[in-house]
Computed example of a mutant assay.
Amino acid sequence: MNHEFDTIRKHVTSVLGQAGSHGMDHVKRVTRLCGQIGEEEHADMAILIPAALLHDIARPIEKTQGIPHEEEGARIAEQYLRSIHYDENHIPAIAGAIRTHRFRSKELPATLEAKILSDADKLDAMGASGIARTFMRAAEHGGGIDDAIAHFHDKLLKLGELMYTGSGRRIAKTRHAFLIRFLEALDEERRGAG
């Protein structure tokens, strides 16, 4: 199984590259979170880990063609997994998890593995990693500090309430508190205090 995961990881790295707010560094953190939460929640790792590795595979296509990456990513993942002869019984569940992982997904996650992937992806948008990614994202879109702060309020501060698993809620509580402390410190510095 680890050999298959390594094959998938290498493929995803070749598509996404290492850096960026949705690069391979993000995928690795989400995969680690999925491993941690999946173990605690007794998930099927043969579904969860490939879904985590492939969840953003279509980000470059979304960026260039405007196609929602969760929908195109599910299609690409199915095709790719069949090309490497991954267990056919797991492919529909992997694609379903990818299709429903996004904050703005039209469909809600239906399986435990899909719920864990959704939680892990949201958790990587919170805490210290989430803060770093938010400023990277703002810069990638030509924005600055004000754009990043708007993103905190539009999305990040809402994520803690959207967790599906007990493990996700526990981790989110700590990361949400860190976001609040950071925003308070940033606001204080920007007002010239301290």
Rank of each mutant, 00 (worst) to 15 (best):
Q36W: 10
A77M: 13
G144M: 04
A125Y: 00
K155G: 01
T174G: 03
G20V: 02
D187L: 11
R9Q: 10
R133L: 06
G23R: 04
D56Y: 06
G73T: 09
A58K: 08
H153W: 11
V12K: 00
I61L: 15
E39V: 08
H26G: 02
G38F: 00
G38R: 01
A132M: 12
H3G: 01
R32V: 07
E40W: 06
I116H: 03
E41F: 06
K122A: 14
R133M: 05
L16T: 01
M24V: 07
R75T: 13
S105M: 12
F178Y: 15
H69W: 10
K122S: 13
R175A: 11
I8S: 01
E88M: 12
H11D: 05
H151A: 12
E189V: 04
T64F: 13
E189S: 07
H55S: 10
F103P: 01
R190Q: 14
E184M: 12
D187N: 14
A58Y: 08
D154Y: 12
H69R: 09
H69M: 13
H42C: 09
P109L: 14
A128S: 09
T7M: 07
R75W: 06
D87G: 01
A77Y: 10
E107C: 08
N89Q: 15
R190I: 15
R169V: 05
Y80C: 06
N89K: 15
A52Y: 00
L108T: 11
A77F: 11
G73M: 14
I84V: 11
A148T: 02
P50M: 14
R82N: 15
R29W: 02
R133H: 08
E39M: 11
R181Q: 14
L112F: 12
L159A: 03
A51E: 03
R102I: 04
I49S: 02
I47S: 00
A139V: 06
Y164G: 10
T165Q: 05
T134I: 09
M24Q: 08
V15K: 02
I49K: 03
S105H: 08
R169A: 13
S118I: 05
N89C: 08
D25C: 01
S129M: 07
H101Y: 07
E188S: 09
I91S: 02
I180F: 06
D154S: 06
E113R: 03
S21D: 03
E88S: 13
E39L: 10
H55Y: 05
K173T: 15
E161W: 09
A97W: 07
T174E: 14
R104Q: 12
A51Y: 00
A52S: 13
R99Y: 12
I116S: 01
E113A: 06
H22I: 10
R82I: 11
A19F: 12
G143D: 07
E188I: 12
F152M: 08
L16Y: 05
P109R: 04
L53N: 02
M45W: 04
M163D: 04
G23F: 11
R9K: 15
V30T: 09
F135A: 00
A185P: 05
R170P: 00
A51R: 00
T100Q: 06
A93L: 13
E140N: 09
D187W: 09
L179T: 02
D147G: 02
H69P: 04
F135E: 02
G166E: 15
Q79E: 15
A138S: 14
